[in-house]
Design a protein around this nucleic acid. Structure first.
Lengths: 236, 236
DNA sequence: ACCTGAACACCGTTCAAGT
DNA sequence: ACCTGAACACCGTTCAAGT
């Protein structure tokens, strides 16, 4: 109903401010993503942030999907590509542990990264290096599959972490209650096992939760590296 | 504006039809999910399908999230739990390959399954058996982590397959073009590697695409089983 | 208890002009 | 070329009654 600016001096933006550019739109969208995730803002909010009408977004960048792709590309571009020459296992440990730090700051980008893959130019650049690292390590024809497997494993786990943070802040509590109900239940001794494993940690303290998440992420990366490592005959 | 029925005889549902129940709502939502995925229907469409006003959904089941949870629980309940007594590796191969068949019929459920985990009663029942299988195989305290890792690896991959089917029907073509541009590019020899791997397959034919997806899913399951297997000292 | 209408506060996207 | 207004066709959810 009312325009995007509030004092409504009508020509305020066009007179007092530089014209909006595509870069400014992506910049603002990236900031909104840092706050509420890639699905946490609307095109209308983004337009409001820049004090323009929604139509301007379409003019400079495109629809919501195009803006989201641009944000994802920017964020993935911040992932540091490890030094070439490192042993393949260490190269991927650095990429995947470092990548998580970047991606978790922009919820929803991990999911999009895995979905679109090397369609994002920044993801393509990383893949280029990673496949070479694996080829040099002796994976031969299997380098592409191994690369997809390793990055999928890790970044998909980041995507679930994002999902849980976004949708179910109380899910841990619900789960704890469910599992506690089966603790010492002889009919479901598998669940009792899980219950003991989950309850042992301080499930209340957010710091402890983060530590458990990080531990499971490291576990995931390690198991996946072990899994592809066996293709080389690495039986360490 | 107009009511949910079209002939608009106003009392049609209440006179000619049995009252709507929670089970009917979940049934209809499951059918809509089979058609367009878990995010592919709205509460208003669901109400329209049952020829009632949207408010009725809330009365019997709850909000959109509650309906989606109920659908996910129903779908996960259709996953066949393998025989106990199978070797652990074979038990998980059957669970994860069979689970994919069920989940792919209801796009979006895999993502929700991984996000909510054993909060879904049907997922809890499977976890109960799976953790026991791993404990009996000798994983001891590591059974819970191994269970989460194995099911995450597999079902998260199903979730991306769903995502790609839903959001980017033309993504394969875009990727093929991107990679083809770097084929035989000496500056990006890693990408050339990928290009050769991707182009080798008939990327046009949908049957070939499905076969490639299935092959990568089997690869993922195998590598993840290898990865946790190393924890047992399985160096086959 | 179950359902009807209608409303509230949003979406993404597009049309048709304006400067 | 860039931006304004306004509209179109949707959302999920809730209010206030009706039977």
């Amino acid at each position: 109903m009312t325009g995007p600016t509030e004092p409504r001096t009508r020509s305020r933006r066009s007179v007092e401010r530089p014209p909006v550019t595509a870069a400014m739109i992506v910049e603002a969208a990236t900031a909104l993503t840092a706050e509420g995730g890639l699905e946490g803002w609307s095109t209308r909010q983004l337009a409001g942030e820049l004090e323009v009408w929604p139509r301007v977004i379409y003019h400079h960048v495109g629809d919501r999907d195009a803006v989201a792709d641009a944000v994802a590309d920017r964020v993935v571009g911040r992932i540091r590509v490890p030094e070439p020459g490192l042993p393949w296992r260490q190269w991927f440990e650095e990429l995947l542990l470092g990548g998580r730090e970047v991606l978790r700051g922009y919820r929803g980008v991990a999911r999009r990264l895995v979905r679109t893959g090397p369609i994002l130019p920044s993801a393509l650049a990383i893949m280029d290096r990673g496949v070479l690292v694996l080829r040099d390590a002796g994976f031969a024809d299997g380098a592409t599959a191994a690369y997809r497997y390793l990055t999928n494993s890790a970044y998909l786990l980041v995507a679930v972490e994002d999902d849980r943070a976004e949708h179910l802040p109380d899910a841990r509590a619900r789960l704890a209650v469910t599992l506690a109900a089966h603790r010492d239940d002889p009919e479901h001794s598998g669940l009792a096992e899980v219950g003991r494993a989950v309850m042992g940690r301080g499930a209340d303290d957010p710091g402890a939760i983060r530590a458990v998440e990080e531990e499971f992420y490291a576990y995931t990366v390690a198991r996946s590296l072990d899994g592809v490592g066996m293709l080389l005959g690495d039986r360490a």
